[in-house]
Design a protein around this nucleic acid. Sequence first.
DNA 1: CGGGCACTTGATAACTTTCAAGGGAGGTGG
DNA 2: CCACCTCCCTTGAAAGTTATCAAGTGCCCG
Lengths: 242, 242
Amino acid sequence: MTRMTNPLILKLEQRDRLSDDEKKVLESAITRVRIVEADEDIVREGDRPNESSLLLDGFAARYKIVSNGRRQISALHVPGDFLDLHSFLLKTMDHGVLALTTCRIAAVPHVTLEKITDEYPHLTRMLWLNTLIDGAIHREWLTAMGRLSATAHMAHLICELYLRLKAVGRAEGDMVQLPITQAELGDTLGLSTVHVNRVLQELRKEGLIRFQGDALTILDWERLKKVGEFTSTYLSLQNEDR
Amino acid sequence: MTRMTNPLILKLEQRDRLSDDEKKVLESAITRVRIVEADEDIVREGDRPNESSLLLDGFAARYKIVSNGRRQISALHVPGDFLDLHSFLLKTMDHGVLALTTCRIAAVPHVTLEKITDEYPHLTRMLWLNTLIDGAIHREWLTAMGRLSATAHMAHLICELYLRLKAVGRAEGDMVQLPITQAELGDTLGLSTVHVNRVLQELRKEGLIRFQGDALTILDWERLKKVGEFTSTYLSLQNEDR
DNA sequence: CGGGCACTTGATAACTTTCAAGGGAGGTGG
DNA sequence: CCACCTCCCTTGAAAGTTATCAAGTGCCCG
């Protein structure tokens, strides 16, 4: 499903006004668009990319493998997200990025990013902001993982994903397409697949969500938020001068 | 204990060269230095600061309280760290920042940061980098919290703190001052205080560390790293053009 | 129609929390 | 100068949450 509007612009414009010039710069920053199939790596741990990947369509995850082969997903990405904007300055990837579904990905060369930082201060701040939001999400996940029950943590994640998808026009009413397996959810929440299954059943039984195939429907937003102790502040969905 | 060199400059110079001009700009960005006593808030959740706080001396933590009163610490800060540089662009604090010890804190007005982003592209990238390293640490903590045992997680944290303190000249050989209570460590790792105690005893019994009062000594770095599955890549301690 | 993958279920085991209590060190007031 | 209070660390036992192990079901795709 291809959209006309670059979802990154959609995402940034929710946080601050972009000038036409800035939008043009962003559009022209893209050198090429490629397709990555599900379960393929988009970037590998240890890589030193000379471009950053922008997700145009599909779902992707940042992940890390630990010694016993267990995997932890540290970020889930939806269209409009940069997958490794941080590699522009961090240089070496400290984690891999994986396509969860077929992904359409735009490449932005690091030389272009450097040029933007030299010439477009406000646009630079917007890109910086983008990585700051990633950081805010990381902190929220840390809190959820450390101090919430498995059920609350799941509810929290669902709230977040719903809002993030809605923010880039990927929600249809109370429903979003969420093509993520329970095993992947487990790797995201730090739970076993079996427990993910039980937790989802609990949320379903409570009448909070419906989750059939890829279709996730929010049945009771208020109670879901309450169960997940969710507040959206950290997503910075406010439009402000930045 | 006051040092002459601004620890932020020390920290940044480990990652890339700073020009004399840039250093001067950083030094003069500081408007005032204040002291915050242990257990006091430096910034509160919900605040909209118009300046960012740079930690010159002491230990601080970003934290969040969840409903049942439990607390999660999402970042531990050592001298040279910005505590809320992200508030420059995120505007609203999504968490609080607490002094764990008496802290000496410099204030950098957001208007000054904006001026830096307008006029000093490379310095801007270095500040951006600073927040990217925070993000990398968050991801590493997520992995440790989700997929490592309590003991491994603790070992991992100790490795990280030792290196970070060493990087700003706060290590004396294999020893660092770590004035953090076991309760605070629990809030950092997502564990109960009791379990923190048991995990520390295990690391001591294994001959990996000594931890008496505030003095933490690394007794067997190689084995500690192995237990904590620690690799330092994510700390970006390499000097590179950025 | 067979195979594979994702989801589901039940039983047991492991890890971590909670509850309860005692010990030790430092600071403060009488 | 000592008693006492508080905070932190430590220990033991019981409870709770989540993982692991083991199967079985359903569905999509070749």
